[in-house]
Simulated scan of single mutants.
Amino acid sequence: MTMKDTFSRFFFISDLGQIETEVRRVSGYIFPGYDFSEISSTLGDIERVYRGEYPGYRESNASYHDLPHTLAVFLATARLVHGLHLSGFLFSWNSFTAVLHASLFHDIGYIQEENDLEGTGAKYTKVHVRRGIDFMRSYLGKRGYSQSYLEDCARIIEYTDLSFEPAENGGTSSEVRIMARILASADLMAQMADEWYLPKLPALYREFVEGGVTGFSSEYDMLCKTSAFADYVRNRLSGVLGGVNSLVRLHFRERWGIDEDLYCFFMERNIRELEDILTRFGSDYRKAFEHLSLQKGLSKTC
């Protein structure tokens, strides 16, 4: 068995039930006796929103920012917080719950309301963070959460906006700031380490076009610029996000006995593979992407 095969057994969890089980288990490592019921209930509702089974909302139709991505970020967030716990940083049950909630709502702003029949949710790319915060406030407010809790969740989600440059303190507690950095890091790590990252890049370009994101003249141009984006991600993780991504190594060492940052491992592998595909196939890269999709079984579980 190769190193990749060994690592992927513990890394690529895609089934919603398995992800919930793993996050529940990790939560118990952090806070023995942690009451997971509220998170479990929210997770079930998030699934219904994305599937079009939640009153007032259409089924998710943003092909890149989909339910599997949200689940991957949810899992990466729990793994990072476990690493934070292992590092000796003290934080509250409340802050942990807030970052789990925030991870589930961070991309819900791509979902269209039931009477919004024009285009897809990708048209909200530039404002999806604000829309996600609005959804979160409404949902958690109805469940009786305090205004201060909603403000903490809002600030945590806000950090996932790549245009957001947080101030050193920003009027929030050190716990909220580090949880915000964790979610923003988990968002970047989960998408770029995803085994489906390369086959899904054309879908991301289509979302950018509909959402009015400029800077790319074509799908191929975006792919050619992805290595530069990876450099940006590395710099953002180690810079404004405080390097909290490195905490995940503590999680994998404690949970699985693997002394490796698996997110970094698979992210770098994806970038090398993309560069190789572009070198070998150029603008005819679709053949390679089709082959990758066939290798992965044509569909994902969620």
Rank of each mutant, 00 (worst) to 15 (best):
residue 3 M to G: 00
residue 3 M to H: 00
residue 4 K to V: 11
residue 8 S to D: 04
residue 10 F to Y: 09
residue 10 F to K: 02
residue 10 F to G: 01
residue 10 F to D: 00
residue 10 F to P: 00
residue 10 F to W: 03
residue 10 F to L: 04
residue 18 Q to P: 02
residue 19 I to F: 14
residue 20 E to A: 07
residue 22 E to T: 13
residue 23 V to W: 07
residue 25 R to G: 04
residue 26 V to R: 07
residue 31 F to G: 13
residue 31 F to P: 15
residue 32 P to F: 09
residue 34 Y to D: 08
residue 34 Y to L: 14
residue 36 F to Q: 11
residue 40 S to N: 14
residue 41 S to A: 11
residue 51 R to I: 00
residue 53 E to G: 01
residue 54 Y to K: 01
residue 54 Y to N: 02
residue 55 P to Y: 06
residue 56 G to Y: 08
residue 56 G to L: 13
residue 56 G to F: 14
residue 56 G to R: 10
residue 60 S to C: 15
residue 63 S to N: 11
residue 73 V to D: 09
residue 74 F to C: 12
residue 79 R to Y: 06
residue 85 H to W: 06
residue 86 L to K: 15
residue 87 S to H: 12
residue 87 S to Q: 03
residue 87 S to G: 05
residue 91 F to P: 07
residue 92 S to R: 12
residue 94 N to Q: 13
residue 96 F to I: 04
residue 98 A to Q: 15
residue 98 A to H: 14
residue 99 V to H: 07
residue 99 V to R: 11
residue 99 V to N: 13
residue 101 H to A: 12
residue 102 A to T: 06
residue 104 L to A: 12
residue 106 H to C: 10
residue 108 I to M: 15
residue 109 G to C: 07
residue 123 K to T: 03
residue 125 T to S: 11
residue 125 T to A: 07
residue 126 K to S: 09
residue 131 R to N: 07
residue 131 R to L: 09
residue 131 R to E: 05
residue 132 G to P: 09
residue 133 I to M: 11
residue 133 I to W: 05
residue 134 D to F: 13
residue 136 M to Q: 14
residue 138 S to L: 14
residue 140 L to Q: 13
residue 143 R to I: 03
residue 143 R to C: 04
residue 143 R to S: 09
residue 145 Y to V: 04
residue 146 S to L: 08
residue 147 Q to C: 01
residue 147 Q to S: 12
residue 148 S to D: 12
residue 153 C to R: 04
residue 153 C to F: 01
residue 155 R to V: 12
residue 156 I to H: 08
residue 158 E to N: 12
residue 164 F to K: 01
residue 165 E to V: 15
residue 165 E to P: 05
residue 168 E to C: 06
residue 169 N to K: 15
residue 169 N to V: 07
residue 170 G to M: 07
residue 171 G to R: 08
residue 174 S to H: 10
residue 179 M to R: 10
residue 183 L to W: 14
residue 185 S to E: 00
residue 189 M to I: 01
residue 190 A to R: 06
residue 191 Q to A: 08
residue 193 A to N: 04
residue 193 A to W: 06
residue 195 E to Q: 09
residue 196 W to V: 03
residue 199 P to E: 02
residue 200 K to N: 08
residue 202 P to N: 12
residue 203 A to S: 14
residue 204 L to E: 08
residue 208 F to H: 14
residue 214 T to A: 13
residue 215 G to K: 05
residue 216 F to D: 04
residue 217 S to C: 01
residue 218 S to D: 15
residue 220 Y to L: 08
residue 223 L to F: 14
residue 223 L to M: 09
residue 226 T to C: 06
residue 231 D to E: 08
residue 233 V to H: 04
residue 235 N to C: 06
residue 238 S to K: 15
residue 242 G to L: 11
residue 243 G to V: 09
residue 244 V to C: 12
residue 246 S to I: 02
residue 249 R to C: 12
residue 252 F to W: 06
residue 253 R to Y: 00
residue 255 R to L: 04
residue 255 R to Q: 14
residue 255 R to Y: 09
residue 258 I to S: 04
residue 261 D to E: 06
residue 263 Y to G: 10
residue 266 F to W: 02
residue 266 F to Q: 01
residue 270 N to F: 00
residue 270 N to V: 00
residue 278 L to S: 13
residue 278 L to I: 11
residue 278 L to F: 10
residue 287 K to Q: 10
residue 294 L to F: 08
residue 294 L to M: 11
residue 294 L to Y: 03
residue 297 G to E: 10
residue 301 T to Q: 11
residue 302 C to F: 15
